[in-house]
Computed example of a mutant assay.
Amino acid sequence: MIRYPALNEGTTIGVTAPSSGVSVELHDLLRLAFKRMEVQGFKVVCGETIWTQNKAKSSPAKVRAIELNAMMSDDQIGLIIPPWGGELLIEILEYLEFDHFKNKWILGYSDTSVLLLAVTLKTGTATAHGTNLVDLRGDYSDHTTAMWPSVLSTKTGESILQFSSEKYQKEWNHANPSPCVFHLTEQTYWKSIANHHVNMQGRLLGGCIDVIRHLIGTPFGDVLHFQKNHCNNEPILWYLENCELSTADLRRSLVQMKLAGWFDHCSGLLFGRSDANRPIDNYTAEDIYKELYEELQVPIIYDIDCGHVPPQMTFINGAYAEIEVKDGKGSVKQTFKQ
């Protein structure tokens, strides 16, 4: 059975940095994001880790874990949003007190997806893969990003529908700030291997493949146990996105996931847009997707609204999803099914 947290109006957001914090010269980004959250009616509680960054982390692993443990056990906090991802979240997993975590949302992506997937696999509690806090600092959010409160407000047993974006951001332009943070200039087009019209269903799991692959073989990456004990052996629908991997490394990672049994009883795979997929000897991401399709014989969708090429949908680890893609447009219906 899956437990779904509830996002209540006026809830308190706990901001902690389980991976990277924010360097001094960028603290204004945090303060802007806090103001936007308060305008929307939320309260904000800040941890100390968010204000520091050194040696690829906000602070030592135990310090990060203690702060996160405290926020996860605090009844006054209803939602955890890190400022952004980073590099070394995996260091804190062994210090986390999963048994004492209260039923509350954690929202984020990039390195934060290590925490999201570990929490869902270990506890059966749904987690939210979506926007980072600093990306909410704009005067307004695009329609895709702005869905996050609606998704997190969905009640157990109910459904929420999201649609693919109209446009996405090709590259960051920090010298020319946008009122909605992102510069959405390119036409969004969801693509598929083999079929132009695709339907798939299953329990959502996923995140940034660069980092979640390192959960394989650890106590925090037991997908088969999760599938058996929390979702009645229903098929898994994987969503994955590549931040920095070359195509060869992406292929190695996917083969490792397959050999570890992560794709056993899988109903499909979705891949986010990526500007990383660097070809190796003419070996492209599309080649990888075709090989996976031939090996797994399940639908494969790519260039979806997920990951480091914004905007992105809010995907709920553990939710039951029904996904349709036709003529480049996609819809994602998530049901908070226990």
Score class of each variant (00 low, 15 high):
239 Y>F: 15
253 S>N: 11
162 Q>H: 08
193 I>F: 03
234 E>S: 14
230 H>Q: 13
194 A>Y: 07
260 A>E: 11
148 W>Q: 05
207 G>H: 02
260 A>Q: 13
246 S>E: 09
206 G>P: 05
159 S>C: 09
214 H>D: 10
261 G>R: 02
213 R>W: 00
225 H>C: 13
184 L>G: 02
142 D>M: 11
145 T>P: 00
225 H>P: 10
252 R>K: 07
156 T>D: 11
195 N>Q: 14
237 L>F: 05
201 Q>G: 14
263 F>R: 08
189 Y>W: 08
216 I>H: 02
170 K>Q: 13
194 A>H: 13
170 K>F: 00
149 P>V: 12
252 R>T: 06
165 S>F: 01
224 L>D: 14
172 W>K: 04
211 V>M: 13
243 C>M: 05
247 T>K: 01
136 L>E: 09
189 Y>Q: 07
197 H>S: 14
194 A>P: 04
149 P>T: 11
234 E>V: 11
148 W>T: 04
156 T>S: 13
156 T>V: 08
234 E>Q: 15
165 S>G: 06
146 A>P: 12
205 L>E: 03
188 T>D: 12
228 K>Y: 06
251 R>Y: 13
205 L>R: 03
180 C>T: 10
158 E>G: 11
216 I>V: 13
144 T>L: 05
196 H>Y: 07
151 V>Q: 10
173 N>W: 05
257 M>Y: 02
147 M>F: 13
243 C>T: 10
182 F>T: 04
224 L>G: 09
256 Q>F: 01
136 L>S: 05
171 E>V: 00
161 L>K: 15
180 C>N: 14
216 I>W: 01
203 R>A: 15
262 W>N: 10
209 I>H: 03
158 E>P: 03
234 E>H: 15
142 D>L: 07
165 S>W: 00
157 G>F: 07
